[in-house]
């Protein structure tokens, strides 16, 4: 059985005055999938999240949550969504337990299931010992956890997290990422971020936004290969003149990193590494180590977002 589609948004648009801040966005999300919404500041990520969570109403387009139309039956559809805004909506003078129970009741958790829902949400977010504390006295990291707990307490099918790791220290970020990954097993998760590392670590799929439009969408693995530059770093114990290396078929650029290490870029189709190794064996260059260059998301992101404006101007 193929995974159920939990969120289906078609052709969403939203204007701010005359300016279109969201243009024609379509998104689909399957159960058990973590989707990263990536983009520079001001690209419209938060607005998209607000549209999907039903806080704002799109000026055009349809949103279906688990097959329920968000505009026509907001009550039923919103019960399937958990939303953590950019700024967690916490009542600073409430106790953690009271706040979470309030959130659960608002999301329609039945009275009989409240205690269990509270216990599960707290244990998932590591809040077991903070139930009696006043939210305003908690650290930023713990407040963020309370925010996430609030979003998952009613066991929603779709969890929408807007920049969940902003302002946290590295160990807190690690914890929250692990939590999101875990959430992704049972729920569908959309998270927005401008941190590429986050996408690399936890997202199955990436959508890149710029100027209110989705400009690229693919699996995060495929996106990494996009920034990939064909090449490798090789160590030669008795290297020849660099000019010799250029003679190897396919080599585009040679950069000496040290006396014995060279970074070699080559054209994508050429089988340069093999050619170099066999040549090295013939000439006695003593090749020792050959590491292919890893493409990273950073490169891919820059690659995609820089290419886009030009394309846009042409159309």
């Amino acid at each position: 059985m193929s995974a159920q589609i939990t969120l289906n948004a078609r052709n969403l648009s939203r204007r701010l005055g005359r300016r279109e801040v969201i243009r024609n966005i379509s998104l689909q999300l399957k159960r058990g999938e973590v989707l990263g919404l990536l983009g520079p500041n001001g690209a419209g990520k938060s607005t998209t999240m607000q549209l999907l969570s039903g806080v704002l109403i799109p000026h055009a387009g349809q949103i279906e949550i688990c097959g329920i139309n968000l505009a026509q039956e907001p009550g039923r559809a919103k019960a399937c969504i958990g939303y953590l805004p950019e700024h967690p909506p916490l009542y600073r003078d409430m106790r953690v337990d009271d706040f979470l129970l309030y959130a659960a009741k608002l999301h329609g958790v039945a009275r009989s299931g409240l205690a269990e829902a509270l216990a599960i949400a707290k244990s998932r977010c590591g809040l077991e010992d903070t139930g009696r504390k006043i939210i305003g006295t908690l650290s930023k990291g713990y407040q963020q956890r309370v925010g996430i707990a609030q979003a998952i307490i009613h066991n929603p099918d779709v969890v929408i997290l807007d920049e969940p790791t902003v302002g946290l220290d590295p160990s807190q970020i690690r914890d929250i990422r692990a939590l999101i990954r875990e959430l992704g097993n049972a729920h569908s998760v959309i998270l927005s971020t401008h941190l590429l590392g986050e996408v690399e670590n936890i997202c199955d799929r990436v959508e890149i936004m710029q100027r209110g439009q989705l400009i690229y969408g693919d699996t995060s693995v495929r996106m990494q290969s996009l920034g990939h530059q064909a090449g490798f770093i090789v160590t030669l114990q008795s290297p020849p003149e660099p000019a010799e290396l250029y003679k190897v078929p396919g080599v585009v650029n040679v950069e000496a990193l040290s006396a014995t290490r060279f970074k070699i870029l080559h054209s994508i189709d050429a089988n340069t590494a093999e050619a170099l190794l066999s040549l090295s064996a013939q000439q006695g260059w003593q090749a020792q180590q050959l590491t292919p260059l890893q493409g990273n998301l950073e490169d891919a992101f820059v690659h995609i977002t820089q290419k886009q404006p030009n394309q846009h101007d042409q159309t």
């Binding site: 919103k78 909506p89 608002l106 999301h107």
Partner: peptide, 14 residues
């Protein structure tokens, strides 16, 4: 002001 209204707006409450 405290941006907690979002909690109510995102809840299944009219």
């Amino acid at each position: 002001r405290n941006q907690t209204l979002v909690l109510l707006m995102a809840s299944p409450v009219a």
